[in-house]
Design a protein around this nucleic acid. Structure first.
Lengths: 204, 204
DNA sequence: TCGTACGTCGTACGTTGTACGAAGAAGTAG
DNA sequence: CTACTTCTTCGTACAACGTACGACGTACGA
């Protein structure tokens, strides 16, 4: 499992084949099938490994701090394993780590005073934001702020005719000037979402 | 392109091969390569077909209504083409329809009075929500509310030991009782996000 | 000593993306 | 009409894929 995740991180999930994984483990291809019924099952298990890496919301703090921590952790983990995001779409049954995670998040929200159905709404909203952000971040063609500045000036701006895309040009320029940090960008939206949820609590 | 999208919708993107697509078109496999340099390029083009289906924010209404319309449309389209979500993670260069869409959204936000960088934040937040929601919706193992109720009682609840997952049991039960409609769920979070963004506008 | 279970893997089959180059179709110039 | 170019189609071939099947060695309790 760990080697499979490492391979997917390094080369992309498209390059992960049973034969390559076996070779990386110093084994024959068919040996893998003793531990895993199919490649599908391997991918399911890999997703659960990723979920295991995400911090659970700590219990001792206020709900906003707790949710912020786990959301930030989730973003970091998904940025480390970008292939996991694309995989989730096709895989429908959650693994044990996934379930434990959901339980902990729901518990945190319920204890914070969100009614049952409201907690579900909050869950959808928060998870949507986290996954969607990770998805967008994964499809960025650069990794660091410097790389972004370089690419913006050399690639994006020349590709965007000013008369056809005036607003995109404007914001690209502003972004280059201000610098772009995914972690900060993430926190900004996250704080808005958390603040928007706050009034939905029912004081206990 | 259209046939490729239809095939992916019907059978999943995993079942889309150059040979199958060619057969569906009544052509030889290699003929496709006259129109497309590689399968990668085909997938890129398919994504752009999907973006073309998403409604642009209308210009004549207030910004919240405009963004709501385009977000709702985006969710519908992505629910129709779930494979597109998973594909976005690996594809880094946006197609023309994608760019047009981004331009229109940014224009709408800027005209509504959001400062340049704030508009970027809003864009990330809104897109994250839309994509993340679509991703979660795509990984649901059911399609309709009735199907959900059936599955919840027959599959989920028996799988979730009450003592280990008390909160998940509670919300699953509440959801079965209340019914679950993805479209409504989506609007709920969307309205929260829009309301959270409202005060960031600068009156013109 | 032997049966059973555990773990490994070689071979083989059908399918995949696509490099290469041949071949027909269609248009243009003389 | 012919000659030549450009457009479009596709057959073949190759390496890599997932995995069904069955053979094999080893460990261990009886």
């Amino acid at each position: 499992m760990a080697e499979a995740v490492r391979l997917a991180d390094r080369e992309g999930v498209g390059e992960l084949s049973m034969r390559r994984l076996a070779r990386a483990l110093g084994a024959g291809a068919m040996s893998l099938y003793y531990y895993v019924a199919s490649k599908e099952e391997l991918l399911d298990a890999m997703i659960d490994v990723v979920f295991e890496e995400i911090e659970l919301p700590p219990e001792e703090t206020d709900w906003q701090s707790a949710m912020r921590r786990r959301a930030v952790s989730a973003r970091q983990v998904l940025a480390r394993h970008p292939w996991a995001i694309g995989l989730m779409e096709s895989r429908t049954s959650p693994g044990p780590a996934n379930l434990r995670h959901r339980e902990a998040v729901t518990a945190c929200l319920r204890r914070a005073g969100f009614p049952v159905l409201t907690a579900t709404h909050a869950n959808w909203l928060l998870d949507s934001y986290v996954y969607g952000f990770a998805l967008q971040e994964a499809s960025l063609p650069f990794d660091t702020a410097d790389e972004f500045a370089d690419m913006a000036e050399d690639v994006f701006l020349p590709q965007l005719p000013v008369d056809e895309f005036p607003y995109l040009n404007e914001s690209a320029a502003a972004l280059v000037a201000a610098g772009f940090d995914p972690a900060e960008e993430f926190i900004f939206g996250l704080n808005l979402v958390l603040a928007a949820l706050e009034p939905l609590r029912v004081p206990t």
